[in-house]
Design a protein around this nucleic acid. Structure first.
Lengths: 225, 225
DNA sequence: GTAGTCATGTAAGAGGTTACATGATTAG
DNA sequence: CTAATCATGTAACCTCTTACATGACTAC
């Protein structure tokens, strides 16, 4: 049996669970910050490549601390409270670099929209249209977001990126901006492809309905066999 | 907990965990089969939209049986062994249709390739190239697969689809093929977009290297701050 | 005072991966 | 008789989601 997309690389153990860890390390390269700050950056810009809720981030930071990947500075907040400011260590930087060189196997597909679309014959024209319209809406919104982010990167309007640049020599600035822009452009391309796919699907539904092709779910269509 | 007496409140709470269940139901609409058969279909064609290992499929089939979504026929295999042939019930068909009409929230992004690409500045030109080359290889292979599958659907060369058609009136055949084709075309578009993205990245790396833009990970580049 | 933001956690459970485990049948 | 294929499970573990939970500080 031939399977779809086996990476099948002979070497490279590439044991790549725990990527939340690397996402956190990557953000911490910009500047030391609290878990709370990390969550904000995740929800702001990093979110689009790696989402994580705070219930995952706080415990992971503790584990990273124990593994020596980050240092903590405990700072009093007012009279009674405290906050924990994390910064990346040399070991953390090494871990990040190692991870950047690891080729990891591509994770298996699990695509709800596609799974549904492949079986629209059991549905109704109306329900199928709703699905595709939701798909189109979702990716249209996403597209606008990522396009604005590409512009923000080009105009150097991203605070965390500016901070990162401030700490590095001028010569490296171009690379820092270029790779961020490149990543966002990947999302732009994906969103565009998905939106176009949804539109193709909506056109297909119109065509089939006009031809009078019946679906199982329709009142007029055949019922359960 | 799913109970049969849920009064289908207002419109679609969209409680959409357990989609493995719906993927299995969808395959079972074609014909009754064993868990082993289901695994083969998953690994063959369904895999590209929904992957699942056998350790997930067997227990889920038992749960579906208990929920009344599938019927089982236990058939002796030789002298001592047995096999369990599952078929979808009316309740299973209803569940499938309900699910097809549910709009589920889009799951959060978690994209390793993009996460890495956004931080190539910490890597080396060589490592970054390897990443993108792997990306390109993966999606080029995927692209060829999905393109062939689109052709197979167009030529009605997919066994499970033929089986499905055999059981339905001629009028519905066009829809059955059209939706499968449409789903595969979505994967084609995605693979094409990802391959193009990787190529754009490889060109970017060439350009930056030619200009002499330094990266952190390079021997010539700055080391850890 | 009170609402909003800053700040940090725990816990239960679903879903998914990997490994362990077994044994029968069939084709050569 | 041996290998491949058919066939079905369990268990440990990890990740992620959702919900529960707390409280201090700050601006109005």
């Amino acid at each position: 049996l031939l399977s779809a997309g086996e990476p099948a690389d002979s070497q490279s153990k590439a044991r790549n669970t725990v990527s939340l860890r690397h996402a956190l390390l990557a953000v911490l390269t910009a500047e030391p910050m609290t878990g709370y700050d990390l969550i904000r950056y995740f929800d702001g810009t990093v979110e689009f490549v790696w989402h994580a809720p705070h219930s995952q981030i706080y415990p992971e930071l503790r584990r990273m601390e124990q593994a020596g990947l980050v240092d903590v500075q405990v700072v009093p907040r007012g009279e009674r409270a405290e906050k924990r400011i994390y910064s990346i260590t040399d070991a953390g930087m090494r871990e990040l670099r190692t991870w950047l060189a690891d080729i990891s196997p591509y994770q298996q597909e699990r695509d709800l929209s596609r799974l549904r679309a492949a079986h629209f014959e059991f549905s109704t024209y109306e329900a199928a249209r709703n699905q595709l319209q939701a798909h189109l809406d979702h990716y249209s919104r996403a597209l606008r977001n990522w396009e604005r982010m590409v512009e923000d990167v080009e105009a150097r309007r991203v605070p965390l990126m500016r901070e990162r640049m401030r700490k590095r020599p001028e010569a490296e600035h171009e690379a820092i901006a270029a790779f961020r822009r490149f990543a966002f452009r990947g999302e732009v391309a994906k969103a565009r492809a998905e939106a176009a796919w949804a539109e193709e699907g909506l056109a297909l539904l119109d065509e089939l309905e006009k031809k009078g092709v019946p679906l199982w779910g329709e009142p007029g269509g055949a019922e359960t066999a």
